[in-house]
Amino acid sequence: MTELKNPPHANRGVVIVKEKNEAVENPLTSMVDYIRVSFKTHDVDHIIENVLHISKDFMAEKSSGFYGYVGTYELDFIKVMYSAPGDNRGVLIELSGQGCRQFESFLKCRKKTWFDFFQDCLHNGGSFTRLDLAIDDKKTYFSIPELLKKAQKGECISRFRKSDFNGSFSLADGETGGTTIYFGSKQSDAYLCFYEKNYEQAEKYDIPLEELGDWNRYELRLKNDRSQSAVKALMKTKDLTLIAMQIINNYVRFVDADENVTREHWKTSLFWSEFIGDVGKLHLFMKPQKDLYQKSRNWLKNSCSPTMKMVLEADKHLGRSDLSDMILEAELSDKQQKMLEVFTADISDMVV
Protein backbone atom coordinates (compact mmCIF):
# COMPACT_ATOMS: atom_id res chain seq x y z
CA MET A 1 0.00 0.00 0.00
CA THR A 2 1.25 3.54 -0.66
CA GLU A 3 1.02 6.95 0.89
CA LEU A 4 1.25 9.80 -1.59
CA LYS A 5 2.90 13.03 -0.55
CA ASN A 6 2.32 16.14 -2.61
CA PRO A 7 5.63 17.41 -3.94
CA PRO A 8 6.88 20.97 -3.62
CA HIS A 9 6.22 23.14 -6.66
CA ALA A 10 9.82 22.66 -7.87
CA ASN A 11 9.20 18.96 -8.45
CA ARG A 12 7.14 19.89 -11.51
CA GLY A 13 4.63 17.04 -11.54
CA VAL A 14 6.76 14.39 -9.84
CA VAL A 15 5.35 12.70 -6.76
CA ILE A 16 7.35 10.60 -4.29
CA VAL A 17 5.66 7.30 -3.46
CA LYS A 18 6.27 5.89 0.03
CA GLU A 19 5.49 2.26 0.85
CA LYS A 20 2.66 2.47 3.37
CA ASN A 21 -0.97 2.80 2.40
CA GLU A 22 -2.11 2.92 -1.20
CA ALA A 23 -4.32 5.90 -1.83
CA VAL A 24 -7.60 4.70 -3.26
CA GLU A 25 -8.08 8.05 -5.02
CA ASN A 26 -4.92 7.40 -7.06
CA PRO A 27 -5.45 3.92 -8.57
CA LEU A 28 -2.99 4.67 -11.38
CA THR A 29 0.67 5.42 -10.81
CA SER A 30 3.34 5.83 -13.46
CA MET A 31 7.11 5.55 -13.30
CA VAL A 32 10.14 5.67 -15.56
CA ASP A 33 10.96 1.98 -15.98
CA TYR A 34 13.94 1.73 -18.35
CA ILE A 35 16.40 4.17 -19.93
CA ARG A 36 19.24 3.96 -22.42
CA VAL A 37 20.91 7.23 -23.43
CA SER A 38 24.15 7.55 -25.41
CA PHE A 39 26.70 10.35 -25.66
CA LYS A 40 29.16 10.98 -28.50
CA THR A 41 32.10 11.35 -26.15
CA HIS A 42 34.75 9.14 -24.61
CA ASP A 43 34.95 11.25 -21.44
CA VAL A 44 33.18 8.72 -19.22
CA ASP A 45 34.23 10.61 -16.07
CA HIS A 46 32.37 13.71 -17.25
CA ILE A 47 29.17 11.74 -17.96
CA ILE A 48 29.22 9.96 -14.59
CA GLU A 49 29.84 13.14 -12.60
CA ASN A 50 27.84 15.68 -14.63
CA VAL A 51 24.88 13.63 -15.81
CA LEU A 52 24.44 10.97 -13.12
CA HIS A 53 26.12 13.17 -10.48
CA ILE A 54 27.61 10.08 -8.82
CA SER A 55 31.19 9.81 -7.60
CA LYS A 56 33.03 7.33 -9.82
CA ASP A 57 34.98 6.19 -6.74
CA PHE A 58 31.94 4.16 -5.68
CA MET A 59 31.49 2.45 -9.05
CA ALA A 60 33.08 -0.90 -9.89
CA GLU A 61 34.75 -1.24 -13.29
CA LYS A 62 34.70 -4.37 -15.42
CA SER A 63 36.34 -4.93 -18.80
CA SER A 64 33.19 -5.95 -20.65
CA GLY A 65 29.96 -4.42 -21.80
CA PHE A 66 26.95 -4.93 -24.06
CA TYR A 67 25.95 -3.51 -27.47
CA GLY A 68 29.59 -3.38 -28.61
CA TYR A 69 30.90 -1.41 -25.63
CA VAL A 70 34.21 -2.63 -24.20
CA GLY A 71 33.89 -1.69 -20.51
CA THR A 72 31.38 -0.83 -17.81
CA TYR A 73 31.29 1.22 -14.63
CA GLU A 74 28.45 0.01 -12.45
CA LEU A 75 26.82 0.71 -9.13
CA ASP A 76 24.52 -2.29 -8.85
CA PHE A 77 21.85 -1.74 -11.56
CA ILE A 78 23.12 1.72 -12.53
CA LYS A 79 25.46 1.09 -15.46
CA VAL A 80 27.68 3.28 -17.61
CA MET A 81 29.36 1.63 -20.61
CA TYR A 82 32.23 3.05 -22.64
CA SER A 83 33.59 2.24 -26.08
CA ALA A 84 37.10 1.79 -27.42
CA PRO A 85 39.06 4.86 -28.60
CA GLY A 86 37.89 5.82 -32.07
CA ASP A 87 34.58 3.97 -31.69
CA ASN A 88 31.75 6.44 -32.25
CA ARG A 89 29.49 4.62 -29.81
CA GLY A 90 30.94 6.86 -27.10
CA VAL A 91 29.35 6.40 -23.66
CA LEU A 92 26.04 4.76 -22.77
CA ILE A 93 23.99 5.08 -19.58
CA GLU A 94 21.64 2.14 -18.99
CA LEU A 95 19.10 2.02 -16.17
CA SER A 96 16.92 -1.07 -15.87
CA GLY A 97 13.71 -0.93 -13.85
CA GLN A 98 15.64 -1.57 -10.64
CA GLY A 99 18.31 0.84 -11.81
CA CYS A 100 15.68 3.55 -12.20
CA ARG A 101 14.42 2.97 -8.66
CA GLN A 102 17.97 3.09 -7.29
CA PHE A 103 18.82 6.23 -9.29
CA GLU A 104 15.73 7.93 -7.86
CA SER A 105 17.42 7.75 -4.45
CA PHE A 106 20.24 9.87 -5.87
CA LEU A 107 17.76 12.27 -7.45
CA LYS A 108 15.85 12.57 -4.19
CA CYS A 109 19.06 13.21 -2.23
CA ARG A 110 19.91 16.08 -4.59
CA LYS A 111 16.28 17.34 -4.51
CA LYS A 112 16.07 16.77 -8.26
CA THR A 113 13.59 14.98 -10.53
CA TRP A 114 13.65 12.94 -13.72
CA PHE A 115 13.12 16.15 -15.65
CA ASP A 116 16.43 17.47 -14.27
CA PHE A 117 18.12 14.27 -15.39
CA PHE A 118 16.58 14.51 -18.86
CA GLN A 119 17.78 18.11 -19.08
CA ASP A 120 21.33 17.13 -18.05
CA CYS A 121 21.32 14.42 -20.72
CA LEU A 122 20.13 16.76 -23.47
CA HIS A 123 22.52 19.53 -22.35
CA ASN A 124 25.42 17.09 -22.74
CA GLY A 125 24.32 15.93 -26.19
CA GLY A 126 22.56 12.79 -25.02
CA SER A 127 20.55 10.73 -27.47
CA PHE A 128 17.84 8.57 -25.92
CA THR A 129 17.69 5.17 -27.60
CA ARG A 130 15.15 3.62 -25.22
CA LEU A 131 12.57 4.95 -22.79
CA ASP A 132 10.01 2.78 -21.00
CA LEU A 133 7.18 4.15 -18.91
CA ALA A 134 5.18 1.84 -16.66
CA ILE A 135 1.65 2.44 -15.43
CA ASP A 136 0.53 0.39 -12.44
CA ASP A 137 -3.23 -0.12 -12.17
CA LYS A 138 -4.44 -1.38 -8.78
CA LYS A 139 -8.06 -0.58 -9.62
CA THR A 140 -7.93 -2.83 -12.72
CA TYR A 141 -10.17 -0.91 -15.07
CA PHE A 142 -10.39 -4.07 -17.14
CA SER A 143 -9.44 -7.74 -17.12
CA ILE A 144 -6.46 -8.49 -19.37
CA PRO A 145 -7.84 -11.92 -20.44
CA GLU A 146 -11.17 -10.25 -21.31
CA LEU A 147 -9.30 -7.50 -23.16
CA LEU A 148 -7.57 -10.19 -25.20
CA LYS A 149 -10.92 -11.78 -26.09
CA LYS A 150 -12.23 -8.40 -27.16
CA ALA A 151 -9.19 -7.82 -29.39
CA GLN A 152 -9.57 -11.28 -30.92
CA LYS A 153 -13.18 -10.42 -31.83
CA GLY A 154 -11.94 -7.40 -33.77
CA GLU A 155 -13.08 -4.89 -31.16
CA CYS A 156 -9.71 -3.12 -30.97
CA ILE A 157 -8.97 -0.33 -33.42
CA SER A 158 -5.25 0.31 -33.61
CA ARG A 159 -2.52 1.89 -35.70
CA PHE A 160 -0.47 -1.22 -34.95
CA ARG A 161 -0.79 -3.98 -37.51
CA LYS A 162 0.30 -6.78 -35.21
CA SER A 163 -0.47 -8.04 -31.74
CA ASP A 164 0.84 -10.98 -29.78
CA PHE A 165 0.02 -12.59 -26.46
CA ASN A 166 1.14 -15.29 -24.07
CA GLY A 167 -0.10 -16.90 -20.91
CA SER A 168 0.05 -20.02 -18.82
CA PHE A 169 -2.21 -22.33 -16.85
CA SER A 170 -1.88 -25.24 -14.44
CA LEU A 171 -2.30 -28.71 -15.93
CA ALA A 172 -3.53 -29.88 -12.52
CA ASP A 173 -6.56 -27.64 -12.15
CA GLY A 174 -6.63 -25.36 -15.18
CA GLU A 175 -5.88 -22.29 -13.06
CA THR A 176 -4.57 -19.46 -15.22
CA GLY A 177 -1.12 -18.02 -14.54
CA GLY A 178 -1.43 -14.56 -15.97
CA THR A 179 -1.94 -13.11 -19.46
CA THR A 180 0.25 -10.69 -21.43
CA ILE A 181 -0.78 -8.79 -24.56
CA TYR A 182 1.74 -7.06 -26.85
CA PHE A 183 0.47 -4.35 -29.19
CA GLY A 184 2.83 -3.79 -32.09
CA SER A 185 6.09 -5.51 -32.95
CA LYS A 186 8.87 -5.85 -30.38
CA GLN A 187 11.28 -4.80 -33.14
CA SER A 188 9.42 -1.55 -33.84
CA ASP A 189 10.24 1.82 -32.28
CA ALA A 190 7.02 1.85 -30.26
CA TYR A 191 4.96 -0.89 -28.72
CA LEU A 192 2.75 -1.52 -25.70
CA CYS A 193 2.73 -4.39 -23.24
CA PHE A 194 -0.25 -5.04 -20.96
CA TYR A 195 0.03 -7.83 -18.39
CA GLU A 196 -1.18 -9.08 -15.02
CA LYS A 197 1.55 -7.90 -12.69
CA ASN A 198 0.14 -9.70 -9.66
CA TYR A 199 0.68 -13.10 -11.30
CA GLU A 200 4.23 -12.17 -12.33
CA GLN A 201 5.16 -10.98 -8.83
CA ALA A 202 3.51 -13.95 -7.13
CA GLU A 203 5.57 -16.39 -9.21
CA LYS A 204 8.78 -14.37 -8.98
CA TYR A 205 8.75 -13.98 -5.19
CA ASP A 206 6.64 -17.04 -4.25
CA ILE A 207 3.91 -14.87 -2.75
CA PRO A 208 0.27 -16.03 -2.52
CA LEU A 209 -1.70 -14.28 -5.28
CA GLU A 210 -4.41 -13.13 -2.88
CA GLU A 211 -1.84 -11.15 -0.86
CA LEU A 212 -1.06 -9.00 -3.91
CA GLY A 213 -4.64 -8.24 -4.89
CA ASP A 214 -5.62 -6.91 -8.30
CA TRP A 215 -2.72 -5.41 -10.23
CA ASN A 216 -2.32 -4.73 -13.94
CA ARG A 217 0.83 -3.24 -15.50
CA TYR A 218 0.82 -1.26 -18.75
CA GLU A 219 4.26 -0.61 -20.24
CA LEU A 220 4.98 1.90 -22.98
CA ARG A 221 8.24 1.00 -24.69
CA LEU A 222 9.88 3.51 -27.02
CA LYS A 223 13.13 3.22 -28.97
CA ASN A 224 15.40 5.45 -31.04
CA ASP A 225 13.68 8.55 -32.51
CA ARG A 226 10.45 7.79 -30.66
CA SER A 227 12.18 7.82 -27.28
CA GLN A 228 14.15 10.99 -28.11
CA SER A 229 10.97 12.76 -29.24
CA ALA A 230 9.12 11.62 -26.12
CA VAL A 231 11.80 13.04 -23.81
CA LYS A 232 11.75 16.36 -25.66
CA ALA A 233 7.95 16.46 -25.41
CA LEU A 234 8.13 15.75 -21.68
CA MET A 235 10.66 18.55 -21.24
CA LYS A 236 8.31 21.03 -22.93
CA THR A 237 5.23 20.18 -20.88
CA LYS A 238 6.69 18.72 -17.64
CA ASP A 239 3.59 16.56 -17.88
CA LEU A 240 3.24 12.83 -18.42
CA THR A 241 -0.27 13.27 -19.83
CA LEU A 242 0.94 14.22 -23.31
CA ILE A 243 3.08 11.16 -23.89
CA ALA A 244 0.82 8.65 -22.11
CA MET A 245 -2.30 9.83 -23.91
CA GLN A 246 -0.52 10.05 -27.26
CA ILE A 247 0.94 6.56 -27.12
CA ILE A 248 -2.01 4.70 -25.63
CA ASN A 249 -5.03 6.54 -26.96
CA ASN A 250 -3.63 7.27 -30.42
CA TYR A 251 -2.41 3.72 -30.94
CA VAL A 252 -5.09 1.57 -29.31
CA ARG A 253 -8.83 2.03 -28.81
CA PHE A 254 -11.30 -0.61 -27.62
CA VAL A 255 -14.79 -0.40 -29.01
CA ASP A 256 -18.18 -2.13 -28.87
CA ALA A 257 -19.25 -3.88 -32.05
CA ASP A 258 -22.28 -2.41 -33.82
CA GLU A 259 -23.56 -4.09 -36.96
CA ASN A 260 -25.46 -0.95 -37.96
CA VAL A 261 -22.35 1.13 -38.66
CA THR A 262 -18.91 0.53 -40.15
CA ARG A 263 -16.11 -0.60 -37.81
CA GLU A 264 -14.30 2.73 -37.71
CA HIS A 265 -17.49 4.30 -36.32
CA TRP A 266 -17.97 1.80 -33.49
CA LYS A 267 -18.27 3.60 -30.15
CA THR A 268 -15.43 3.52 -27.65
CA SER A 269 -16.10 1.07 -24.82
CA LEU A 270 -17.10 2.74 -21.56
CA PHE A 271 -14.33 1.03 -19.57
CA TRP A 272 -11.73 2.31 -22.05
CA SER A 273 -13.04 5.89 -21.89
CA GLU A 274 -12.85 5.79 -18.10
CA PHE A 275 -9.33 4.38 -18.18
CA ILE A 276 -8.06 6.94 -20.72
CA GLY A 277 -9.68 9.75 -18.76
CA ASP A 278 -7.78 8.80 -15.62
CA VAL A 279 -4.53 8.25 -17.55
CA GLY A 280 -4.85 11.91 -18.45
CA LYS A 281 -4.55 12.81 -14.75
CA LEU A 282 -1.30 10.91 -14.24
CA HIS A 283 1.77 12.36 -12.57
CA LEU A 284 5.25 10.93 -12.93
CA PHE A 285 5.88 9.07 -9.68
CA MET A 286 9.17 8.27 -8.00
CA LYS A 287 9.74 5.26 -5.75
CA PRO A 288 13.35 5.61 -4.51
CA GLN A 289 15.11 2.41 -3.49
CA LYS A 290 18.05 2.95 -1.16
CA ASP A 291 19.03 -0.72 -0.87
CA LEU A 292 21.92 -1.37 -3.22
CA TYR A 293 23.31 -4.79 -4.11
CA GLN A 294 20.28 -6.42 -2.50
CA LYS A 295 20.59 -9.21 -5.05
CA SER A 296 23.96 -10.19 -3.54
CA ARG A 297 22.49 -10.18 -0.04
CA ASN A 298 19.59 -12.34 -1.19
CA TRP A 299 21.99 -14.77 -2.87
CA LEU A 300 23.99 -15.05 0.35
CA LYS A 301 20.84 -15.61 2.37
CA ASN A 302 19.22 -18.15 0.04
CA SER A 303 22.29 -20.05 -1.15
CA CYS A 304 24.86 -19.86 1.63
CA SER A 305 23.17 -19.23 4.98
CA PRO A 306 22.11 -22.90 5.55
CA THR A 307 25.69 -24.06 4.91
CA MET A 308 27.12 -21.33 7.15
CA LYS A 309 24.67 -22.29 9.91
CA MET A 310 25.70 -25.97 9.57
CA VAL A 311 29.41 -25.09 9.93
CA LEU A 312 28.60 -22.76 12.86
CA GLU A 313 26.70 -25.49 14.70
CA ALA A 314 29.56 -27.93 14.06
CA ASP A 315 32.05 -25.35 15.39
CA LYS A 316 30.02 -24.99 18.58
CA HIS A 317 29.90 -28.75 19.08
CA LEU A 318 33.56 -29.32 18.26
CA GLY A 319 34.92 -26.20 19.91
CA ARG A 320 36.35 -24.94 16.62
CA SER A 321 36.24 -21.62 14.73
CA ASP A 322 36.21 -22.76 11.11
CA LEU A 323 33.45 -20.36 10.00
CA SER A 324 34.97 -17.23 11.55
CA ASP A 325 38.42 -18.27 10.25
CA MET A 326 37.08 -18.64 6.70
CA ILE A 327 35.49 -15.19 6.87
CA LEU A 328 38.58 -13.52 8.33
CA GLU A 329 40.92 -15.17 5.82
CA ALA A 330 38.77 -14.39 2.76
CA GLU A 331 40.14 -11.83 0.29
CA LEU A 332 37.77 -9.36 -1.32
CA SER A 333 37.84 -8.81 -5.06
CA ASP A 334 37.96 -5.26 -6.42
CA LYS A 335 34.22 -5.41 -7.09
CA GLN A 336 33.48 -6.67 -3.58
CA GLN A 337 35.65 -3.90 -2.13
CA LYS A 338 33.57 -1.35 -4.05
CA MET A 339 30.40 -3.02 -2.81
CA LEU A 340 31.67 -2.74 0.76
CA GLU A 341 32.29 0.97 0.27
CA VAL A 342 28.72 1.35 -1.02
CA PHE A 343 27.27 -0.69 1.87
CA THR A 344 28.97 1.52 4.44
CA ALA A 345 28.22 4.85 2.73
CA ASP A 346 25.14 7.02 2.70
CA ILE A 347 23.58 8.11 -0.59
CA SER A 348 24.69 11.67 0.20
CA ASP A 349 28.29 10.47 0.35
CA MET A 350 28.09 9.21 -3.22
CA VAL A 351 26.56 12.21 -5.01
CA VAL A 352 28.59 14.99 -6.62
Rank of each mutant, 00 (worst) to 15 (best):
N166G: 12
S321H: 14
A233D: 14
I144S: 04
T241D: 00
R36Y: 10
L312A: 05
E94Y: 06
N298F: 09
E200F: 08
E196Y: 15
N216D: 03
I347P: 10
L122T: 10
F117G: 11
R297F: 14
L234W: 05
H283V: 00
K223N: 11
T237K: 06
S296R: 05
D256Q: 10
S158E: 09
N26G: 04
R101M: 14
D164Q: 00
S303N: 13
G125W: 04
Q246T: 06
L300P: 12
D225R: 15
I248N: 02
Q337V: 15
G126A: 02
M310E: 07
S105L: 01
N26D: 15
W272S: 01
E219P: 01
F169C: 05
T140Q: 13
Y251W: 15
N298V: 08
K112W: 05
M81V: 00
I16A: 04
A190P: 00
A345M: 12
K108P: 04
I16Q: 03
E210W: 13
E196L: 14
E313Q: 09
D137I: 01
V15F: 06
E341P: 02
S321M: 07
T140R: 15
K338V: 15
L4T: 07
D76T: 01
P85L: 13
P306R: 02
H53K: 14
